[in-house]
């Protein structure tokens, strides 16, 4: 029988872990950020991933854009200290408006080094 056709709707998110492994295979240090809880209107669902390598390359999304910069920063710290951390972000209505989100929300993100 023929192969199942891949739907590409979720393509990017599904590729995040694969790309993280590609970076590791390339001897890069990598951290993974994962949305573990959301309150209010959060743009990305629980379980969404963002992978970051030691050169601050990143793939995936945990917020649809508004806090990605801060998360990449935390991820670089997690790589440098080789230590996981749990961080919480509030998206105020003002910020939310600027990045084009309909309303505010709060998200909790677990950031951890990958490896060993």
């Amino acid at each position: 029988m023929s192969e199942t056709k891949k739907s590409d709707t979720l393509g990017t998110d599904e590729r995040v872990l694969e790309i993280a492994e590609e970076w590791l295979a390339d001897s890069k240090k990598v951290a993974l950020a994962t949305v573990v809880a959301t309150w209010g209107s959060a743009p990305r669902p629980v379980g969404s991933h963002l992978a970051v390598d030691e050169d601050a390359r990143f793939v995936g999304s945990v917020s649809g854009g508004c806090i990605e910069g801060a998360v990449v920063h935390e991820a670089l710290d997690a790589i440098a200290e080789d230590k996981a951390r749990l961080i919480e972000f509030g998206v105020s209505n003002d910020q939310a408006w600027e990045v084009g989100l309909a309303c505010g929300g709060t998200i909790k993100i677990y950031v951890e080094p990958v490896g060993a």
Partner: peptide
Amino acid sequence: MKRLTLNSILK
């Protein structure tokens, strides 16, 4: 996350 875990998830 251990690399072993990452590889198991991908597998």
